[in-house]
Simulated assay, not measured.
Amino acid sequence: MTTSTSEDTGGTASTARGRASALRALHVPGRPLVVPNVWDAASARAVEAAGFPVIATGSAAIASVLGYEDGEETPVGEMLAAIARIGRSAGLPVTADMERGYGLEPAELVERLAATGASGCNLEDSDPRTGAMADAGEQAAYLGAVRAAATAAGVDLVINARVDTYIHGTGSAEERLAESVRRGRRYLEAGADCIYPIFAAEAGAVRALVEGIGGPVNILFRPGTPSLAELADLGVARVSFGHGLHEAVRAYAARMLAAIRDGESPYPPGLSAP
């Protein structure tokens, strides 16, 4: 039986801090970190095999795999266990989609995330169940408390603060843009590392967000979003795919099953069966 020593613990902590530092350093405006979000160990290994430097989980995709709806319907223990399995499956920094924190107090959130081996997390500013936007000041205070808890615990955590104004906000496009910038700046001041105005897609808005927020900006890639090269030109620092890849895989599997049902081969011409 192997016992843990202070040297072992120090080495583990040093490795964790190194992964978080590496993750943070990859957020470079104009040279974005591209993170195809994963849902299980197999998809995480595929992302690593494809040469990506970071594993990012997607809450909606993991919820679907586990048999739940998105919106913090997954019991927090099951979500964290899934994140831990993903982390063990690949030798890369992991950033975890933690929605609004699953009701955990900042210190417990930090402790339980650290136990999974995750180096970063997404935290959003709307209620996953109702869609109601959080007060910007309250969300900034929450992010600041997560940062303080991480510092107190000796944990380096890369915080990607999601801004949901483009989903659940109100007002004109100009008003939503202004509110996204306002929130993003407050969240950076509170201790966030990157700002994620999810569903912002129009090129002019993306450029205005990058310039107005004044820190690393994460954009969700989906149909209609500028290309990866264009997002880089706009100064974006991170590009996520959310649950889009998982939805595409499910749709492809459905087409294969329909082919089998209809007595046809599910495999494309020229492709050998595994």
Score class of each variant (00 low, 15 high):
residue 73 E to M: 08
residue 74 T to S: 06
residue 74 T to C: 14
residue 75 P to Q: 02
residue 76 V to G: 07
residue 76 V to Y: 02
residue 76 V to Q: 08
residue 76 V to P: 12
residue 77 G to N: 15
residue 77 G to V: 04
residue 78 E to H: 13
residue 78 E to F: 03
residue 78 E to S: 08
residue 78 E to W: 06
residue 78 E to V: 06
residue 79 M to Y: 05
residue 79 M to G: 05
residue 80 L to Q: 01
residue 80 L to E: 02
residue 80 L to P: 03
residue 81 A to C: 03
residue 81 A to R: 13
residue 82 A to H: 04
residue 83 I to Y: 06
residue 83 I to N: 03
residue 85 R to I: 04
residue 85 R to V: 12
residue 85 R to M: 03
residue 86 I to W: 00
residue 87 G to I: 02
residue 87 G to P: 07
residue 87 G to F: 00
residue 87 G to L: 00
residue 88 R to F: 11
residue 88 R to K: 14
residue 90 A to Q: 08
residue 90 A to M: 09
residue 90 A to L: 04
residue 90 A to V: 15
residue 90 A to W: 03
residue 91 G to F: 03
residue 91 G to N: 14
residue 92 L to R: 10
residue 92 L to D: 06
residue 92 L to G: 05
residue 92 L to P: 11
residue 92 L to H: 08
residue 93 P to V: 06
residue 93 P to M: 04
residue 95 T to P: 06
residue 96 A to S: 01
residue 96 A to G: 03
residue 96 A to Q: 00
residue 97 D to G: 15
residue 97 D to W: 01
residue 99 E to C: 00
residue 99 E to L: 01
residue 99 E to M: 00
residue 99 E to T: 00
residue 99 E to K: 07
residue 100 R to K: 15
residue 100 R to S: 14
residue 101 G to D: 08
residue 101 G to P: 09
residue 101 G to H: 04
residue 102 Y to V: 07
residue 102 Y to G: 10
residue 103 G to C: 04
residue 104 L to H: 10
residue 104 L to F: 04
residue 104 L to K: 11
residue 104 L to A: 10
residue 105 E to R: 08
residue 105 E to L: 02
residue 105 E to W: 00
residue 105 E to Q: 11
residue 106 P to I: 07
residue 106 P to C: 11
residue 107 A to H: 08
residue 107 A to Y: 05
residue 107 A to R: 14
residue 107 A to V: 12
residue 108 E to H: 02
residue 108 E to K: 04
residue 108 E to G: 00
residue 109 L to R: 07
residue 110 V to S: 07
residue 110 V to Q: 04
residue 112 R to H: 07
residue 113 L to P: 06
residue 113 L to E: 06
residue 113 L to W: 05
residue 114 A to N: 13
residue 114 A to D: 14
residue 115 A to W: 14
residue 116 T to Y: 01
residue 116 T to I: 03
residue 118 A to N: 08
residue 119 S to K: 03
residue 119 S to E: 10
residue 120 G to N: 12
residue 120 G to E: 09
residue 120 G to R: 10
residue 121 C to S: 03
residue 121 C to I: 11
residue 122 N to F: 02
residue 124 E to L: 07
residue 124 E to R: 10
residue 124 E to P: 11
residue 124 E to T: 06
residue 125 D to Y: 09
residue 126 S to G: 02
residue 127 D to N: 15
residue 127 D to T: 05
residue 127 D to S: 07
residue 128 P to D: 07
residue 131 G to K: 13
residue 131 G to T: 12
residue 131 G to R: 14
residue 132 A to K: 14
residue 132 A to M: 12
residue 132 A to W: 12
residue 133 M to C: 11
residue 134 A to R: 14
residue 135 D to L: 05
residue 136 A to E: 12
residue 136 A to P: 13
residue 138 E to A: 15
residue 138 E to S: 14
residue 138 E to K: 15
residue 139 Q to H: 15
residue 139 Q to Y: 09
residue 139 Q to N: 07
residue 140 A to R: 06
residue 140 A to C: 05
